[in-house]
Nucleic acid binder design. Structure first.
Lengths: 348, 348
DNA sequence: TGTTAGCACTCCCGGTCAATGAGTGCTAGA
DNA sequence: TCTAGCACTCATTGACCGGGAGTGCTAACA
């Protein structure tokens, strides 16, 4: 946008800020007073006409003031925004409330609440999912005649268990043997890797090797299959969204909440943010999903050892206090990453 | 209500049914046509005046029809309602969709969805919580230097694990020893019982016995303490509630959804239904909670071996199709109980 | 050439008003 | 005991009007 004069930029900024604050279309008279430039309303009107032609502002009807369009917000966020430094009290609160020792799921839930409390919007955090997680160990325990409890230790904070139904009964000793065997073979290896090997070994050795190994492999495969599909997120403070007038009609809310329940679409959107480093923002229709047409999504990925594990962010109305929200999201992502890192470094 | 003539009862029933169907206040003319009695509107009006005096119906304003009051619904539900027999297709769907082998939490989530789908309302199911669960066994696995994974097997479908931080490092062998010891001592016993013993033993033997046992007891106590607090429920289909006009203002919805998130109040209400056997209904303000003023709650407890484990039900607007909803809730509770029972009987 | 004052115009919003229609309470008669 | 009739009440709807806020345009001014 090099065509934008400095004055136009300044006014767009002032207009957007005021609109975000007040929620009302901003007229030329108000803007003249508000902006502090010693210009008459008439002059402002001329500038506004230019901005409107560029598609950065629009008026809901002829005799209302102007409001920023999605493109207007875009320019505002990308080039005009002066981000507020995060206030220390809040930063401390974020830090101290993160108990780095809790399990992933709880940790994620906490972060989600923190985000929603700090911004008064809806907080969202995906569960950490590492592309290359290594398997620390496997255990099998007999539950009842044909049920086996499989426990999969991935790291010192990620444990999954699932109940397997088996064709026949196995004794504790047998199961012990199986898990020993598997741990010997696979402990410390990448999970995808393990799965690949399992499959190929299963095929190869079906007849030749003894039954024990086949069973062990089969079980392990079952567990891994179930463990892997856990792409999910935790949402908090949805009800905060009900406070905003622009979202306050039931149809809009319904679509939004249904999307939250469905998860699929939201997840897909969040996935797009994984690649981007740092804060990423979707404004209104930019997301490409209808139910988010009147919302913005501010996200940031979090990571351990340079490997991105997930995305966190907030969802709120397009008209949100970006200059406050952006640093919060940014900081939270850093703090979460740090928390995950520090405990990951604990020696085994 | 012996003062109610047969005719008055019949008309109250007709009025309530019509109002539930149409959602509009019912006038005397309509009712005269609808009820099939060969009475003129004027006569009906007289009866209505009586019903109004008894507090069973009311009119939103002078020249509108009548709608049932909470007391009116009460009489309707308690004495007038003709419950529809459940249609077999639905029954089958409920049965087949319950995978009796999944874990409690998943099972509960499924039931919740089934309820909400079948009724087009919000389904709610509390997690099973047995007063006297017996401990099947305990396992400890080393995770990292000062972290231990504790696994608590309660039944062949209920497993809890939690990560303990310990003061010092323990070897796999040590942990094995501990769990062996605990299993020997406590396997098969009631969990509360176990906890009590743990505490007393801890006190008694602090100095006398060897450190191993003390640690084992301490760990077990930690796990049990964490495992027990799990009073919770799973909700499904909240968004269904947004379809109803009477709930369609944002303030009402907000209170409702906030209560859903809080859980405390709802849980308290559900707890009251545990004692009652069979379907229990709270209509409007009867619940005593403001956010449910315009809602009704239809619940039924589910149980295994005559022991009530939890409550399930649906939440919807006061104006709901009770004659359809009640049998669904009832049947679902039975089916869930049966499912839990059958698999519980599997020999160990 | 950029800025400003003035002015006519547009459109939303809130209030008033009257017509309509649904439904009621009451009364008198069958 | 029931019913027909009638006057009355009240929500809803649509039309209308005036005020207010803000605009675009034009012409004058620095």
């Amino acid at each position: 946008m090099p065509e934008l004069t400095e004055r136009a930029q300044f006014l767009l900024k002032a207009l957007t800020e005021r609109y975000i604050r007040e929620g009302q279309p901003v007229g030329s008279r108000t803007l003249a007073r508000d902006a502090g430039l010693r210009l008459s309303p008439a002059t402002i009107r001329n500038v506004m006409a230019d901005l409107e032609e560029l598609g950065l502002v629009s008026s809901p009807h002829t005799s209302a003031g102007r409001i920023p369009t999605v493109q207007g917000y875009r320019v505002f966020v990308d080039t005009l925004l002066s981000v507020k430094p995060l206030d220390d009290a809040l930063l401390n609160e974020l830090r101290t409330n993160l108990d780095a020792d809790s399990e992933s799921r709880d940790l994620v839930a906490t972060v989600s609440s923190l985000l929603s409390d700090a911004t008064r919007l809806a907080g969202i955090v995906t569960l950490p999912r590492r592309k290359h997680a290594s398997l620390q160990r496997v255990e099998f325990l007999p539950l009842s005649e044909k049920k086996v409890l499989a426990i999969l230790v991935i790291s010192d904070k990620e444990v999954r268990n699932c109940i397997l139904r088996t064709e026949q009964a196995y004794s504790a000793a047998e199961l012990q043997q199986y898990s020993n065997f598997l741990n010997q073979q696979f402990a410390g290896r990448d999970i995808d890797d393990v799965r690949g090997r399992l499959l190929s070994e299963l095929r190869e050795t079906r007849e030749t090797l003894d039954r024990m190994m086949a069973t062990a492999l089969q079980m392990a495969d079952q567990v891994l299959g179930q463990a892997e599909q856990g792409s999910d997120y935790v949402l908090a403070g949805q009800t905060n969204l009900m406070e905003f007038q622009e979202l306050c009609n039931v149809a809009t809310l319904r679509h939004l909440f249904e999307a939250f329940n469905e998860k699929r679409q939201i997840l897909h959107l969040l996935d797009q943010c994984v690649e981007n480093e740092g804060v990423q923002i979707f404004i209104g229709e930019e997301s490409g999903y209808q139910m988010l047409d009147e919302c913005s999504l501010v996200t940031a990925p979090y990571s351990v050892d340079g490997q991105v594990l997930g995305v966190l962010g907030v969802i709120g109305p397009t008209r949100m206090a970006y200059e406050r929200v952006i640093p919060i999201v940014d900081a939270t992502a850093r703090i979460l990453s740090a928390a995950l890192n520090s405990r990951n470094k604990a020696p085994y």
